[in-house]
Amino acid sequence: MISKTINLTLKVWRQNRGEKKGRLETYSAKNISVDMSFLEMLDVVNEELTKNKKETIAFDHDCREGICGMCGAVVNGRPHGHEKETTLCQLHMRHFSDGDIIVIEPWRARAFPLIKDLVVDRSALDNIIQAGGFISVNAGGAPDANALPISKEIAEAAFNAAACIGCGACVAACPNASAMLFVSAKVSQFALLPQGRPEAARRARTMVRMMDQCGFGNCSNETECEAECPKGISISNIARLNREFLKAEFS
């Protein structure tokens, strides 16, 4: 199919495993169809590298439809690129122009050590969930699903918080590399629902402590996280987390 194509210059962060320092290397991406996604554009560059018997650029990705949270890089200073509420895999090249220079860097945070090139280790986010991001219920013991009516508004608010894909863009975007948006989304989902109330206090306390322990920065209410979050998670969740936490500590 014939569609418009553009040529770009990429400056991509390359850093081998175990290497102390990385560097930006320059590549040209030629004849990029504007219908491609950003990751497909990287595929094209990697194909070219392979053909020249060079090692490809490592980047994380899986679903390529904006839901698994695996992809992500800072593109020209913006996590997941400049389009609003869009993951990197859903960012399409029609939003770039011929001749653009694109700088691509990994998520940068002490809590996300770099593995290779654009790939970082986000297991800190799993650690936080392990600290309390669940409702303690065993399979088999649940009452009928409709036994507990939950207002549509509450269910929707919980859903909106639960929509977080755990990509870590909030951390990457935060000037302090804080994970508050991520933590608050999970705490909020369960704090809103009656099923989650019995453990709400303990959950807020343990998750916040684990977050601190993992080496994330502190929240200064800069709200960059909300601006860059691909799922539009609201900072009102952070306020709810603060509330839940303080309530838990003072009672």
Binding site: N76, G77, P175, T223
Partner: peptide, 15 residues
Amino acid sequence: ARPIRYTVDKRGGGR
């Protein structure tokens, strides 16, 4: 919390 800074650092409109 961010030992290595971004080469290009732009705001998303929150700050």
